[in-house]
Every structure is written in C-alpha cells, then in structure tokens.
C-alpha cells in the first residue's frame, strides 16, 4: 500500500483547529515563561533567603527532570491534592514554568552583566535601588537576552507537542486522532511536521522583528 495524501484535506478543519490550539498554548506559555523568567531572576538575585532557597530547589526540579513528567505531575498528580486543572491550564503552567526557569537563568546572567555605571547613574538621580532595577537594569538585561530567549521560545513551540499526552487537542493530538480514523500515520505526521515548520517560520519572523526593534537601544 503506497502513500496517499488525498486523505489529509478532509481532516483540514481538525488540523487547523490543532494549529490554533498549538499557537494558543505556545503564546500563553511563552508569555508566562517570559514574565515568570524575569520574576524568577529577580527572586534568585535579590529575594530574601527564605524565598531564594526553596526557589533554587524548584528551579533545580524544573531543569533536572523531564518536562513530560512535570506535565503528568501537574495534570494527574495535583488531582490527589484536590487541584483539578483543565488540561490546557495544566499544559500552560507546565510549559510556562519549565521555560521560565531557563529564561530566568539567562536573565540573571544578563542582569549581572549590565554595566555598574547604569545603576550608579540612576541612583545619582535619586532613584531607589528597586526603581533603578525596574527602570534601568532589568529592561537592558532583558533586551540583551532577547535572541537566546527567542531560541527558548522556539524550543517551547516544539515541546508543546508534549501536552497532547494530557489531552490538549493541539496539532500533534489532532494528527493522532486523524491517524486513528484513517490508519495513515505517515501522511498525517508529515502534514503536522509541515504545519509545525510553518508556525516556526512565523515565530522566527516575529522574533526577528522584535530583535530589530531593540537594535537602536543598545
């Protein structure tokens, strides 16, 4: 039996819906990972030790264990504690926190690398340390790590396929459902791959735009 791509168009709607869910979960998780990354970086660098120590443990947990396991833990595990999250929410939390930890590492390094003269100039004008961090140091640190954070966001897009296992009907799960009906795994996985690739191109274009817009502010 040869390949027959003619079955794919009849599942176009389902695949398209899958694309939308993939984009949605990627965007929401990316935003969470971005702002969470900034917050975690500030906590890790400037938080009181009562917060910093548990935070180190939490960061280690998220970096040292498989994302798939984390998703199972959040979706299935938390139910035992009476926290029954919808699959989409569990997926966003898992992906978002996982990548927030990675973004936080980048941002911490960048904060420490911002020229000391920046903090001094801000303090000299009368800004408090917190005001100087928020207005001067952190924006520059974040600007400096936009390219590597962008790479993390591309990785996040690809890893969003993992949330199919907890039942979020994103692109991978949509392809699997179609395969279940048609027994055409190659055709649908290939179609899904092409669609991921297209989303990826779109995302890279957006990231490049953001990078270009921050060019002057260096």
């Amino acid at each position: 039996m040869g390949l027959d791509f003619s079955v794919v168009p009849s599942y176009a709607d389902a695949l398209f819906l899958g694309v939308l869910w993939t984009i949605a979960i990627t965007i929401v998780s990316a935003l969470l990972s971005f702002f969470g990354g900034i917050l975690f970086a500030v906590i890790a660098l400037y938080g009181p030790w009562m917060i910093r120590l548990p935070f180190r443990f939490f960061a280690w947990l998220f970096m040292g264990t498989p994302l798939l396991l984390q998703l199972f833990l959040i979706y299935f595990g938390l139910v035992e504690l009476g926290i029954d999250l919808p699959a989409f929410v569990a997926g966003v939390i898992g992906l978002g926190l996982h990548f927030a930890v990675y973004n936080s590492e980048l941002i911490q390094t960048a904060i420490l690398a911002v020229d000391k003269g920046q903090m001094e100039a801000a303090r000299t004008l009368g800004l408090s340390r917190t005001q100087a961090l928020i207005r001067v140091v952190i924006p520059q640190a974040v600007r400096d790590v936009i390219p590597p954070i962008g790479n993390n966001m591309i990785a996040l897009l690809k890893d969003s396929a993992l949330v199919s296992v907890i039942g979020v009907s994103e692109l991978t799960l949509s392809a699997q459902l179609a395969i279940g009906r048609t027994y055409r795994p190659f055709e649908f996985y290939a179609a899904a791959a092409v669609l991921y690739y297209i989303i990826n191109l779109g995302m890279e274009a957006v990231l490049r735009r953001i990078e270009r817009r921050t060019q002057l502010s260096r």
């Binding site: 920046q118 100039a121 801000a122 000299t124 800004l127 408090s128 001067v136 520059q140 921050t214 502010s217």
Partner: peptide, 29 residues
C-alpha cells in the same frame, strides 16, 4: 534618595540609559 535629587553628577563614561531615547533619559527621573 531625597538628597541625591539635589546633587547632579556627570560621569566620565556618560552612563546614559541606552534603552531610552534622549528625551526619556532626561524625563525619566
């Protein structure tokens, strides 16, 4: 912070805020 508002300082290496425009550098504080 109150005292420093009365004492302007200019540095050898300028220390302008690179992520802000000239206008924003002047108006931020």
């Amino acid at each position: 912070n109150e005292m420093r508002q009365h004492i302007g300082m200019v540095f050898q290496h300028f220390n302008l805020f690179p992520h802000l425009t000239v206008r924003e550098n002047v108006t931020m504080a």
